[in-house]
């Protein structure tokens, strides 16, 4: 089972991504998609596949992957199954940055303004959290992260409260709910370098995370530089999750749930969890984004972040109960 886990998840991800290219308001046949990719043209299927669905599915994979990866790394680093990528203040900071761009109308004049402001916001909060926690241990980092999160969230609420008109408030709300609608190649090009770099840093912590299962003192005694590893995890999360939030808005639960889904399948080893958790996160977001396009509840399309919370929260509850009855 263990040996086949990563190939099986990769296959499932490829299948889900392929299905995602077919599904939507306009349903395409597989041969249309293949033709559009093989011979790019300006006909309708070509435009839909290359300009709308392909960048969107790539973003869904990258964002889900980095959220699942970061969640697995942070749960291993903090040895706490409730840790998630938002813990260090990166998501709240990226949200605040993007909200500022919407509030002052930058995003109306320049479409990449909110992701760029979001990136900057994520990096600023991560740096502040790190400076506050400098010299302290892991607990100091969590506390600094939650303090910074609270400050950024307050800033976002101020923006909502003082929004110049209902339309701006609606736009901010909509952005905060997380979505991949209307994201294109510009967003892919903006987010990909940060997500890839952050992902590489996070993956590099794997072997040390295994040893950290023995606690920080024993890990130090076994040659793990715990302080340096904490810094690598923070930078990796700031780069990757900062970019993901900047592009798609706040998407919760993926980083929390993905590691739990695969943890029993890797025998609870924190280091072995990373790649399967990233693939699971990617799978969740690709499936959820496809669902938001297919589902029509009469009104406007349901947002990605909302759908994931709607399904993710009860699933997480079930998982907690299930794990408890099995291990007790």
């Amino acid at each position: 089972m263990n040996r086949w886990l990563v190939p099986a998840l990769a296959l499932a991800l490829i299948a889900a991504s392929a299905a995602s290219l077919l599904a939507g308001t306009v349903w395409l046949r597989p041969q249309d998609v293949l033709a559009a990719i093989a011979h790019p043209s300006d006909d309708l299927p070509g435009l839909i596949v290359l300009q709308i669905r392909l960048p969107r599915v790539l973003l869904a994979m990258m964002i889900g992957g980095i959220l699942g990866l970061s969640g697995a790394v942070l749960q291993g680093l903090l040895r706490n199954p409730l840790a998630e990528p938002g813990l260090l203040g990166v998501s709240a900071g990226a949200s605040l940055g993007a909200v500022i761009a919407i509030y002052y109308g930058f995003s109306a004049s320049f479409s990449l303004a909110s992701p760029l402001f979001g990136l900057a916001g994520g990096f600023v909060t991560a740096s502040v959290a790190f400076l506050l926690a400098r010299g302290g241990g892991t607990l100091a980092l969590i506390l600094a992260g939650s303090a910074v999160t609270a400050i950024a969230a307050a800033g976002t609420e101020v923006a909502l409260n003082l929004a110049p008109n209902p339309y701006a408030a609606y736009e901010i709300m909509n952005w905060l709910m997380g979505s991949l609608a209307d994201r294109g190649w510009d967003h892919v090009r903006l987010a990909a370098p940060f997500i890839v770099a952050g992902g590489a840093l996070l993956l590099a912590t794997g072997p040390a995370l295994d040893v950290l299962a023995l606690g920080e003192t024993q890990a130090e005694s076994l040659g793990v530089a715990v302080g340096r590893m904490r810094l690598i995890a923070l930078i990796g999360t700031a780069l990757g999750v900062g970019a993901a939030t900047a592009v798609a808005g706040a998407i919760g639960f993926v980083g929390l749930v993905a590691p739990h889904v695969v943890r029993p399948l890797v025998h609870h080893q924190p280091g072995r969890l990373l790649l399967p958790s990233a693939l699971t996160g990617a799978l969740i977001v690709v499936l959820a984004d496809t669902a938001t396009r297919v589902m029509r509840l009469g009104g406007p399309p349901i947002n990605l972040g909302v759908l994931i919370s709607l399904v993710g929260a009860p699933f997480f509850l079930w998982l907690v109960l299930h794990v408890r009855t099995r291990t007790a």
Binding site: A213, L214, T217, L222, G223, H267
Partner: peptide, 24 residues
């Protein structure tokens, strides 16, 4: 080095915990 009340924080199998001692 073994600190006071050394333990393990995830339900990892005994064999794999012992193997962690070979990490260096």
């Amino acid at each position: 080095y073994l600190p006071q009340r050394a333990g393990v924080e995830w339900p990892i199998s005994v064999e794999r915990v012992v193997a962690l001692g070979l990490a260096p």
